[in-house]
Design a protein around this nucleic acid. Structure first.
Length: 313
DNA sequence: CTAGGATCCTGTCAGC
DNA sequence: TGCTGACAGGATCCTA
């Protein structure tokens, strides 16, 4: 799930908790979730949090960096010392003294980001916890249901040579339009959606913001890249920037569910999504029913009126 | 080189 | 209730 706005929200939120703090122990519960040695990390201090596309980079004061990619279902959950067990379920018939003794999670003692699940506020570690990083003032849990995500240890100076980082294109804010448009012209037989999802073409978009950008631009997701006009390409970049900025401003699509702790999801999708997961609902622009199909092997949402497959403007 | 499909893994949900 | 298959907000590898 986590796309650029979610990772950026995690970077900003986690920063206030872990910057300047020291790693004390690291427990790897799933080997494939942690690439590299843990020993050299012990005692190191976190000095910087960066982001490249959907990758989070945690720089340490010993010239090492943790490259974290959450892929589909990764989560990063920080809890201050004493709050690891999470908070008492609000709806449960809380006559039990045990749950009453749990301190509620708040912006002051906890942070959770990534794939939204109960893990944001329920007891940790749980069955989806893959790595436990203990700091001097709390614990950072790396959870990941599907084990696609990972934490990778790299010398800081070699981060840029990492295969994934090195192949990343620019983000929509910095991308050079002629570079972008040239790729659309060259890969004429790709659907435009598959190119928007390709991190080597443009960095940061995933399935949500690709669909949102296409809606914003009035472009059908299955349009072949070679048929996209310059105006449409500009509007696609504008749409990507617009939807991702709106999401970052609202705290990403999934944040702070623990505050309410009622199982409700985050706010971006509810408040701002125009098409994503809105199949069967009226288009916010024209009122026609939003449709869901499959493009580039992914579930794809669009408005057939606002995003016609045939015909130019 | 390109484009499409399978694949990694676990959980959930719809349909029988 | 239990089973089955489809699918899931990502990226890579394999094939033709």
């Amino acid at each position: 799930m986590p796309e650029l706005p979610e990772v950026e929200t995690i970077r900003l939120g986690l920063k206030t908790f872990i910057l300047g703090h020291q790693l004390q122990t690291i427990k790897v519960l799933c080997q494939k979730s942690f690439l590299g040695p843990t020993d050299p990390l012990i005692g190191a201090k976190i000095i910087r949090l960066r982001r490249r596309g959907k990758a989070l980079l945690v720089d340490l004061d010993n010239s090492l960096t943790l490259l974290i990619h959450l892929r589909m279902t990764g989560q990063l959950i920080f809890r201050s010392t004493g709050t690891e067990k999470g908070q008492a379920p609000l709806k449960a018939s809380s006559t039990k003294t045990k749950s009453l003794s749990l301190k509620p999670l708040s912006d002051d003692n906890a942070f959770a980001g990534g794939h939204p699940t109960d893990s944001f506020y329920s007891p940790l570690p749980n069955t989806q916890t893959r790595v436990i990083l203990k700091l001097d003032h709390g614990t950072l849990f790396f959870n990941d249901q599907r084990k696609f995500g990972f934490i990778k240890v790299l010398p800081t100076v070699e981060v840029e040579q990492d295969n994934f980082i090195a192949s990343l294109a620019a983000e929509p804010w910095e991308i050079d339009f002629s570079d972008f448009y040239r790729i659309l012209q060259r890969r004429t037989h790709s659907s435009i959606k598959s190119l928007l999802l390709d991190q080597k073409v443009i960095a940061g978009l995933g399935n949500i913001y690709a669909d949102e950008a296409l809606f914003f631009a009035g472009v059908h997701p299955a349009r072949l890249a070679g048929t996209i006009t310059e105006l449409e390409a500009h509007r696609l970049l504008d749409g990507a920037i617009f939807s991702m900025e709106a999401s970052i401003k609202s705290g990403g699509s999934t944040m702070k569910t623990y505050v309410r702790a009622d199982g409700s999801k985050g706010n971006y999708l509810e408040q701002f999504a125009q098409v994503f997961r809105r199949e069967g609902l009226p288009c916010r622009r024209c009122g026609h029913e939003i449709e869901k199909t499959r493009v580039a092997g992914r579930g794809t949402h669009f408005c057939p009126i606002c995003q016609p497959l045939k015909g130019e403007l």
